[in-house]
Design a binder for these strands. Structure first.
Length: 321
RNA sequence: GGGCAGGUGGUAGAGCGGUCAAUUACUCCAGACUGUAAAUCUGGCGCCUUUAUGGCUACAUAGGUUCGAAUCCUAUCCUGCCCA
């Protein structure tokens, strides 16, 4: 039986995932699925480090430009799309490469996290927003004692979502998808960890990574990143709907990193140099947060160069087939 | 040269006789993570140890006052502003 092969390439930002992925995909007849929470948006190219059209011709890429930046795109959208893409690629007898730096998206996809299908309830959210974490926690404890046990009681974001779910379903968080756990005493969230994936992690020393980040930021600025953000604000390039695609500074803030800091610069809240320095710093911190997630996954095979990666892929493909 | 205001932990910046190893923010280090995830949140952050209502060294430097000083006094050095 042909195993459903899947290769994941992950690593902190700027570590060189895209280049490695393209090389491997060409070599092993693969297609790439981007696992990046910002590359899904149309018009956000330079700031997200999206591969060029030319590179996209070399290897077919999935899940780039699948959403409008005006709309909220989340894991709940991503996971099914990614899983579908994997299936399609396999059906073509090609090798899927899931490549990106958004850990949550990657793990939701490969470990099939069961994300409660409860739509965000904006009304409820805005009502709850004014409450303190303590108040929210008290509410949740009453509604869903079990979730309250495991949740981070200081995190309003999560508390609100948990309350939103229990109110909509009347059932505790992941349990309504897993009835077998309702009677059980397990407090662990059920998770199907996939072990037949090859996960390659690109290893870089912190110093090296920092240099790479700074260098790449410079390249992005030279490549017209600021103009790109201006474009989003004015929606000149809003091709489809005739320029009604303008996005706000507020939305850019939420996009984070390059979009956030360039937006602040364009609003005159930062000088050019401040923007560059603060952005560098923010990206450094971001890369550390990514690593915090990856560090604990013992499945990841950390590689130092393309050669190592290639060898591991060979071995993986040769296995039980 | 004279006057004034200051010198506090990696940074900014509180404290102005005891309860101060020193509020707070940031940085830094570590961590969490089930529909905003480039988001959101947590812990640690002088040194030592048998981890403790423990010991040691610290608030420019040197002295002094006091039972007790980052906090008061004196001198010195340094910084900023003002007048010459």
């Amino acid at each position: 039986m042909a195993r459903s092969k899947l290769i994941v390439i992950l690593g902190p930002t700027s570590s060189g995932k895209s280049a490695l992925a393209i090389q491997l995909a060409r070599k092993f007849k693969g297609e790439i699925i981007s696992a990046d929470s910002r590359q899904v948006y149309k018009g956000m190219d330079i700031g997200t480090g999206k591969v060029s059209k030319k590179e996209q011709k070399l290897v077919l890429h999935h899940l780039l430009d699948v959403a409008s930046p005006k709309k909220q795109f989340t894991v709940a959208h991503f996971k099914p799309l990614a899983q579908k893409a994997i299936k399609q690629i396999l059906a073509k007898k090609k090798l899927p490469f899931l490549v990106g730096g958004t850990p949550f998206y990657i793990y939701a996809t490969i470990d099939d996290l069961q994300i409660p299908e409860v739509q965000p309830n904006l009304k409820l959210r805005s009502k709850l927003r004014s409450k303190t974490a303590t108040e929210l926690f008290a509410m949740l404890k009453k509604l869903d004692p079990r979730r309250a046990k495991n949740i981070d009681r200081h995190n309003p974001h999560r508390l609100i979502r948990a309350i939103e779910i229990i109110k909509a379903t009347g059932l505790p968080v992941p349990l309504f998808r897993h009835p077998e756990f309702i009677s059980g005493s397990q407090d662990q969230i059920p998770k199907q960890v996939r072990n037949d994936v090859l996960i390659l992690g690109i290893q870089k020393s912190p110093e090296e990574l920092r240099k790479l980040i700074d260098k790449r930021l410079k390249q992005r600025l030279n490549a017209g990143m600021i103009a790109e953000v201006k474009g989003l604000l004015s929606a000149k390039g809003g091709s489809a709907s005739g320029g009604k695609n303008k996005i706000s500074h507020k939305r850019l803030q939420a996009m984070g990193l390059e979009y956030r800091f360039v937006s602040l610069y364009l609003q005159g809240k930062l000088t050019y140099n401040q923007m560059v320095e603060q952005l560098k710093h923010a990206i450094h911190k971001f890369s550390k947060r990514q690593m915090t997630w990856f560090k604990t996954d013992s499945r990841i095979k950390w590689i130092k160069n393309h050669k190592q990666a290639e060898k591991l892929v060979r071995q993986y493909l040769a296995r039980d087939n």
